[in-house]
Design a protein around this nucleic acid. Structure first.
Length: 413
RNA sequence: CGGAGCGUCGUAUAACGGCAGUAUUCGUGCUUUGGGAGCACGAGGCCCGGGUUCAAUUCCCGGCGCUCCGACCA
């Protein structure tokens, strides 16, 4: 894609109202735009990142037997009354012309449970796992930290249905691994810890995935011995590591990028979701719920990996793998021609390229490349062409090498 | 929801009870081209409502909005 055609532009300065690093960098780079507090538009570059994250999650969930669906955000009041959640404080409500009331879904147990009830009647129909990527609406008392805590946000929510606790436990263990793989592929695996946390009203404990960053809202205690972490909220009642029984921890600020928890029969009871076991007796279905906020994950990647010059995207989620800068290239010049050739060749082998073809100075292009954060910066100029080469710089390490044009595609593939 | 702060060209800022200035951005032209280029000319602004006053962007009140701290956060 040609940068001159991108309708967004970079900015030298972030709006003063934005203090959080993810919002500053993402707004300056033209990745996102704020409509109101906690509500953001994803612009072309930002949407590419979000879609890359989504695809990683999709692939990992499909491997674990997840089936993708898309449920409505717009939901009838009756379902929320059935689960006694119509009056929870985060719920956005709306009315139609006849006064009928609806909720904008903050989560989807009220939709997915009656949905699956239509299809689950026998132990033969279990287990099941369905998921979606869907906008959630939550009336946060205080939206904050850029895209880390919004009022409308894209979330992956998966719901699992089981015949018994043992089967649920099995799947819960699978999801722990799946989540670990997702965060690893998103480039923050080394900073993300499985964390013991409060289970709320459904069970004693749940598990969160917490990524270490100073922007984090949570405090976690990481076990020195086994690296399991404990959320501060249950630290007092859990003085020792539940996994290895050691008692030495390192305290870190972290942001919750995902969580998994047991729903027991809280929703299957409310909607009377039961199945017949081998003996023909009715049994309640055991449920689990597994969430990842995609925008929050994207913001966390920025927070965790950015440096003082800008964003540093892992290759797996970057909007483009290569940022090609043409320097001193006028229409029809050797630089432009060489750049066009490189793009054609790279795209031919599936490498995405953002081409800075703007009539800007070298310094401006370098600064933007640092800000935007593509993994590979490739510079083509009369200087490099004299060597029949292009300069390749790794955004993450700053390592720079001159690569012969003949070898460039193989080098970047 | 409690507390605090802030609303001035697209962005960042200054000053001011009467004339709103600077940088950046944008437009035009010329010169530039390996770390946010230079010169010239031009464009663009006081959140909304009420009050005080001869006069309000400025002072007062209310609203709205944004940010931060706290509480909350299946």
């Amino acid at each position: 894609m040609k940068q001159s055609q991108l309708f967004t532009k970079t900015r030298k300065e972030a709006p003063k109202e934005e203090v959080s690093r993810n919002a500053q960098l993402l707004i300056r780079g033209g990745y996102i735009d704020k409509l109101m507090a906690g509500v953001y538009t994803y612009l072309p570059l930002g949407l590419r990142v979000l879609k890359n994250i989504e695809q990683i999650i999709r692939e990992e969930l499909n491997k674990a037997g997840g089936q993708e669906i898309l449920m409505p955000a717009f939901q009838p009041k009756e379902n929320w009354e059935l689960t006694k959640r119509w009056d929870i404080d985060i719920l956005y409500k709306t009315k139609d012309f006849e006064g009928r009331e609806y909720a904008l879904g903050p989560t989807h147990e009220e939709v997915v449970t009656p949905l699956l009830k239509q299809f689950i009647s026998s132990y033969r129909d279990l287990p099941r796992a369905v998921y979606q990527f869907q906008d959630k609406f939550r009336m946060e008392k205080r939206a904050k930290s850029g895209i880390l805590r919004g009022r409308e946000f894209l979330m992956k929510d998966l719901y699992s249905f089981h015949a018994n606790e043992a089967d649920f436990d099995l799947y819960y263990g699978v999801m722990k691994k799946v989540y670990g793989e997702i965060f690893k592929r998103c480039g923050i695996g080394h900073k993300t810890y499985l964390t013991f946390a409060s289970g709320g009203i459904f069970s004693k404990y749940s598990h969160e995935f917490q990524t270490i960053t100073p922007a984090g809202e949570d405090l976690i205690y990481i076990c020195d011995n086994c690296s399991l972490a404990i959320n501060k909220e249950i630290k007092d009642e859990t003085p020792k590591c539940p996994q290895c029984n050691h008692a030495d921890f390192k305290e870190e600020k972290a942001i919750e990028v995902g969580n998994i928890f047991s729903l027991k029969t809280r929703f299957s009871d409310a909607f009377n979701l039961k199945y017949k076991d081998e003996k023909g007796e009715l049994q309640p279905v055991i449920m689990g719920c597994y969430g990842i906020g995609l925008g929050r994950l994207m913001g966390t990647i920025v927070e965790a990996l950015a440096d003082d010059k800008g964003i540093v995207w892992p290759e797996t989620v970057a909007p483009f793998k290569v940022h090609l800068l043409g320097l001193a290239g006028k229409e029809g010049s050797a630089v432009t021609e060489a750049a066009e050739n490189i793009i054609t060749e790279l795209e031919h082998v599936g490498v995405s390229v953002l081409y800075d073809d703007r009539d800007a100075t070298a310094g401006a292009k370098f600064a933007d490349a640092d800000l935007l954060g593509m993994p590979y910066r490739v510079v083509i100029s009369e200087k490099t062409l004299a060597e029949k080469s292009a300069e390749v710089k790794l955004r993450q390490t700053g390592e720079t090498t001159l690569v012969k044009l003949d070898h460039l595609v193989a080098h970047l593939k």
